[in-house]
Nucleic acid binder design. Structure first.
Length: 483
RNA sequence: UCCCCGAUAGCUCAGCCGGUUAGAGCGACUGACUGUUAAUCAGUAGGUCCCUGGUUCGAGUCCAGGUCGGGGAGCCA
């Protein structure tokens, strides 16, 4: 006997092979049972949509049908039919049903009803089974693929930079210590300090906060490189935009200046968004509807004017606004918001870092589109950023998006050995430990630039999810490392 | 880390000025129903009112401390 062909739910829904027999496997979303006929809604994650399985109640044992509840895993074989109901084009008339795994309805926490995102976060191991989280997972995957595709098509090489690092000079935040020492019995040297020479690596090590410095080393040989890896920050940040463990995309390009850097960031962001628009229609439609419902819960004045799809198309179709820090300060200082005291922090003058309310004003009120801010005062930026001729500003750039704020930040790097050394001294960076980084400026140093793009923030923007904990499967935040 | 808000049934919430037996909707369960779309209709069960201490004749309700969650800020991506 010929083996029955197995199709995914997606393939089944796309098929026109009416009358043919197929096999499908998936999990029950809902079951509706009446006297003669039962309907089982099946999902396997291959698509947002579900397959309707039609069951002749007389043919199957009552006991089996009773055990098929929301969450159960099934194999169904049957005939593909044009649906007699109006909700779907095709349906599967079941000939055999195998119950692979039961889900006791008294204990299974997912119910055929709307759940809050807060509740689903507590059951993150099961939330993949909801429409929202499966949609986010699929979109996230497509974005990952599009990132690699973009860089590959543009001549970049992907570099795996280390996750464990001995450098604590990346300057991007508090680090997580990596050690194999017995914390209850730490070896100490005479003055009471911990003897790290006995640790696994023979020195202090941490989880990386950025792959940038290593990416620079690679760029100064391979010209165009990027990293796309996990990053760890031990900051006690409790916001909807911060994670202790997140994924960052960090391109680094030799023979490039800060303007090339901005072009690259804009091109990458637009490419990935366009790719998702082209390949995730169903999921985006669902997420758009979800977001719209969420927006309706808010007060009128707090609602975001554009729908999700409208917002994504708008970003793809419009040039990002590019202004310098100095111009931004002027705009903000002369704004009605500032004059009427609507900002919590009034703009007094040049030199202070912008508050997020100021960034949001520029993006959402002034320009109404993504903004790239550049040439910040050197004292609020990192040591490796290239000093401008004015001696006061550096060639930094931040990409600001509506709703999520800073999505990327980067700069042209200081390629002059002398100037870099000077900046390291000014900012108390341990230059001895950074000998390998400084070597790049001693041997064949050339202009180069790069940036870091927070992947989860980007996924937030594309999916419209308002909390970053809902765009990564297992979020790591202060006081939370469950699952 | 700071500011604000919250924690009551499996979920989402109501519970008034402290008062006797703590409620609703959804979900679950049982039954009815000739094709349903998160089906519908009828019924049933389901509670450590977050924890510790305090005030009081009496605390879900008031007070203090804590834990956890949410929103905002800072830090940043």
């Amino acid at each position: 006997m010929e083996k029955i062909k197995r199709l995914s739910v997606r393939q089944m829904l796309d098929s026109f092979d009416y009358g043919k027999t197929f096999q499908v496997m998936g999990w029950v979303r809902t079951k509706r049972i009446s006297k003669n006929v039962a309907f089982i809604t099946l999902n396997d994650g291959s698509t947002l949509h579900n397959l309707q399985v039609v069951v002749d109640v007389a043919v199957f044992p009552e006991d089996l049908l009773n055990r098929i509840n929301t969450g159960a895993g099934l194999t169904v074989e049957g005939t593909l039919l044009e649906s007699a109901g109006s909700g779907q084009r095709v349906e599967l008339a079941a000939a055999t049903i195998t119950l692979l795994g039961e889900a006791d309805p008294d204990q299974y926490p997912l119910q055929p009803k709307k759940h809050s995102l807060e509740f689903l976060r507590e059951i993150a191991h099961l939330r993949f089974r909801t429409s929202t989280f499966s949609a986010v997972a699929r979109v996230r995957h497509v974005m990952i693929f599009a990132v690699h595709k973009f860089f590959t098509e543009n001549g970049f090489y992907n570099i795996h930079t280390p996750i464990i690092t001995a450098s604590d000079a990346e300057g991007a935040g508090e680090m997580f210590r990596v050690t194999t020492l017995d914390l209850n019995k730490l070896p100490v040297v005479e003055d009471g300090r911990i003897d790290y020479s006995q640790d696994f690596f023979g020195r202090e090590t941490n989880l990386t906060v950025s792959g940038q410095l290593e990416a620079e080393l690679a760029a100064l040989a391979l010209t165009k490189v990027y990293t796309f890896g996990p990053t760890f920050r031990a900051e006690n940040s409790n916001t909807s935009r911060h994670l202790a463990e997140f994924w960052m995309i960090e391109p680094e390009v030799a023979f490039a200046d800060n303007s090339d850097n901005m072009d690259l960031a804009e091109d990458l962001l637009k490419y990935v968004i366009q790719y998702v628009l082209d390949h995730c229609g169903d999921d985006l439609d669902f997420l758009a509807k979800r977001q719209q419902e969420e927006e309706m819960q808010k007060k009128q004045e707090e609602r975001f004017a554009m729908g999700l799809l409208e917002k994504l198309r708008f970003v793809v179709e419009n040039q990002f606004e590019r202004i310098t820090y100095t111009q931004a300060i002027d705009i903000l200082k002369n704004s009605n918001y500032n004059k009427k005291g609507k900002f919590q922090y009034t703009i007094e003058g040049w030199g202070a870092d912008l508050q997020s309310e100021h960034e949001r004003y520029l993006v959402e009120k002034q320009f109404k589109k993504p903004v790239i801010l550049s040439d910040y005062p050197k004292k609020i930026k990192a040591f490796y950023m290239k000093l401008n001729d004015d001696g006061e500003t550096v060639r930094a750039m931040d990409v600001l998006f509506p709703q999520i704020g800073e999505v990327a930040g980067g700069s042209q790097r200081e390629e002059s050995y002398e100037k870099l050394l000077m900046r390291m001294k000014e900012m108390n960076i341990p230059e001895k430990q950074m000998w390998w980084y400084l070597d790049t400026r001693r041997f064949g140093s050339v202009p180069h630039a790069g940036f870091g793009l927070g992947f989860e923030r980007f996924v937030q923007f594309v999916t419209g999810m308002s909390n970053i904990r809902d765009v990564i499967p297992f979020p790591r935040t202060p006081k939370n490392a469950e699952f």
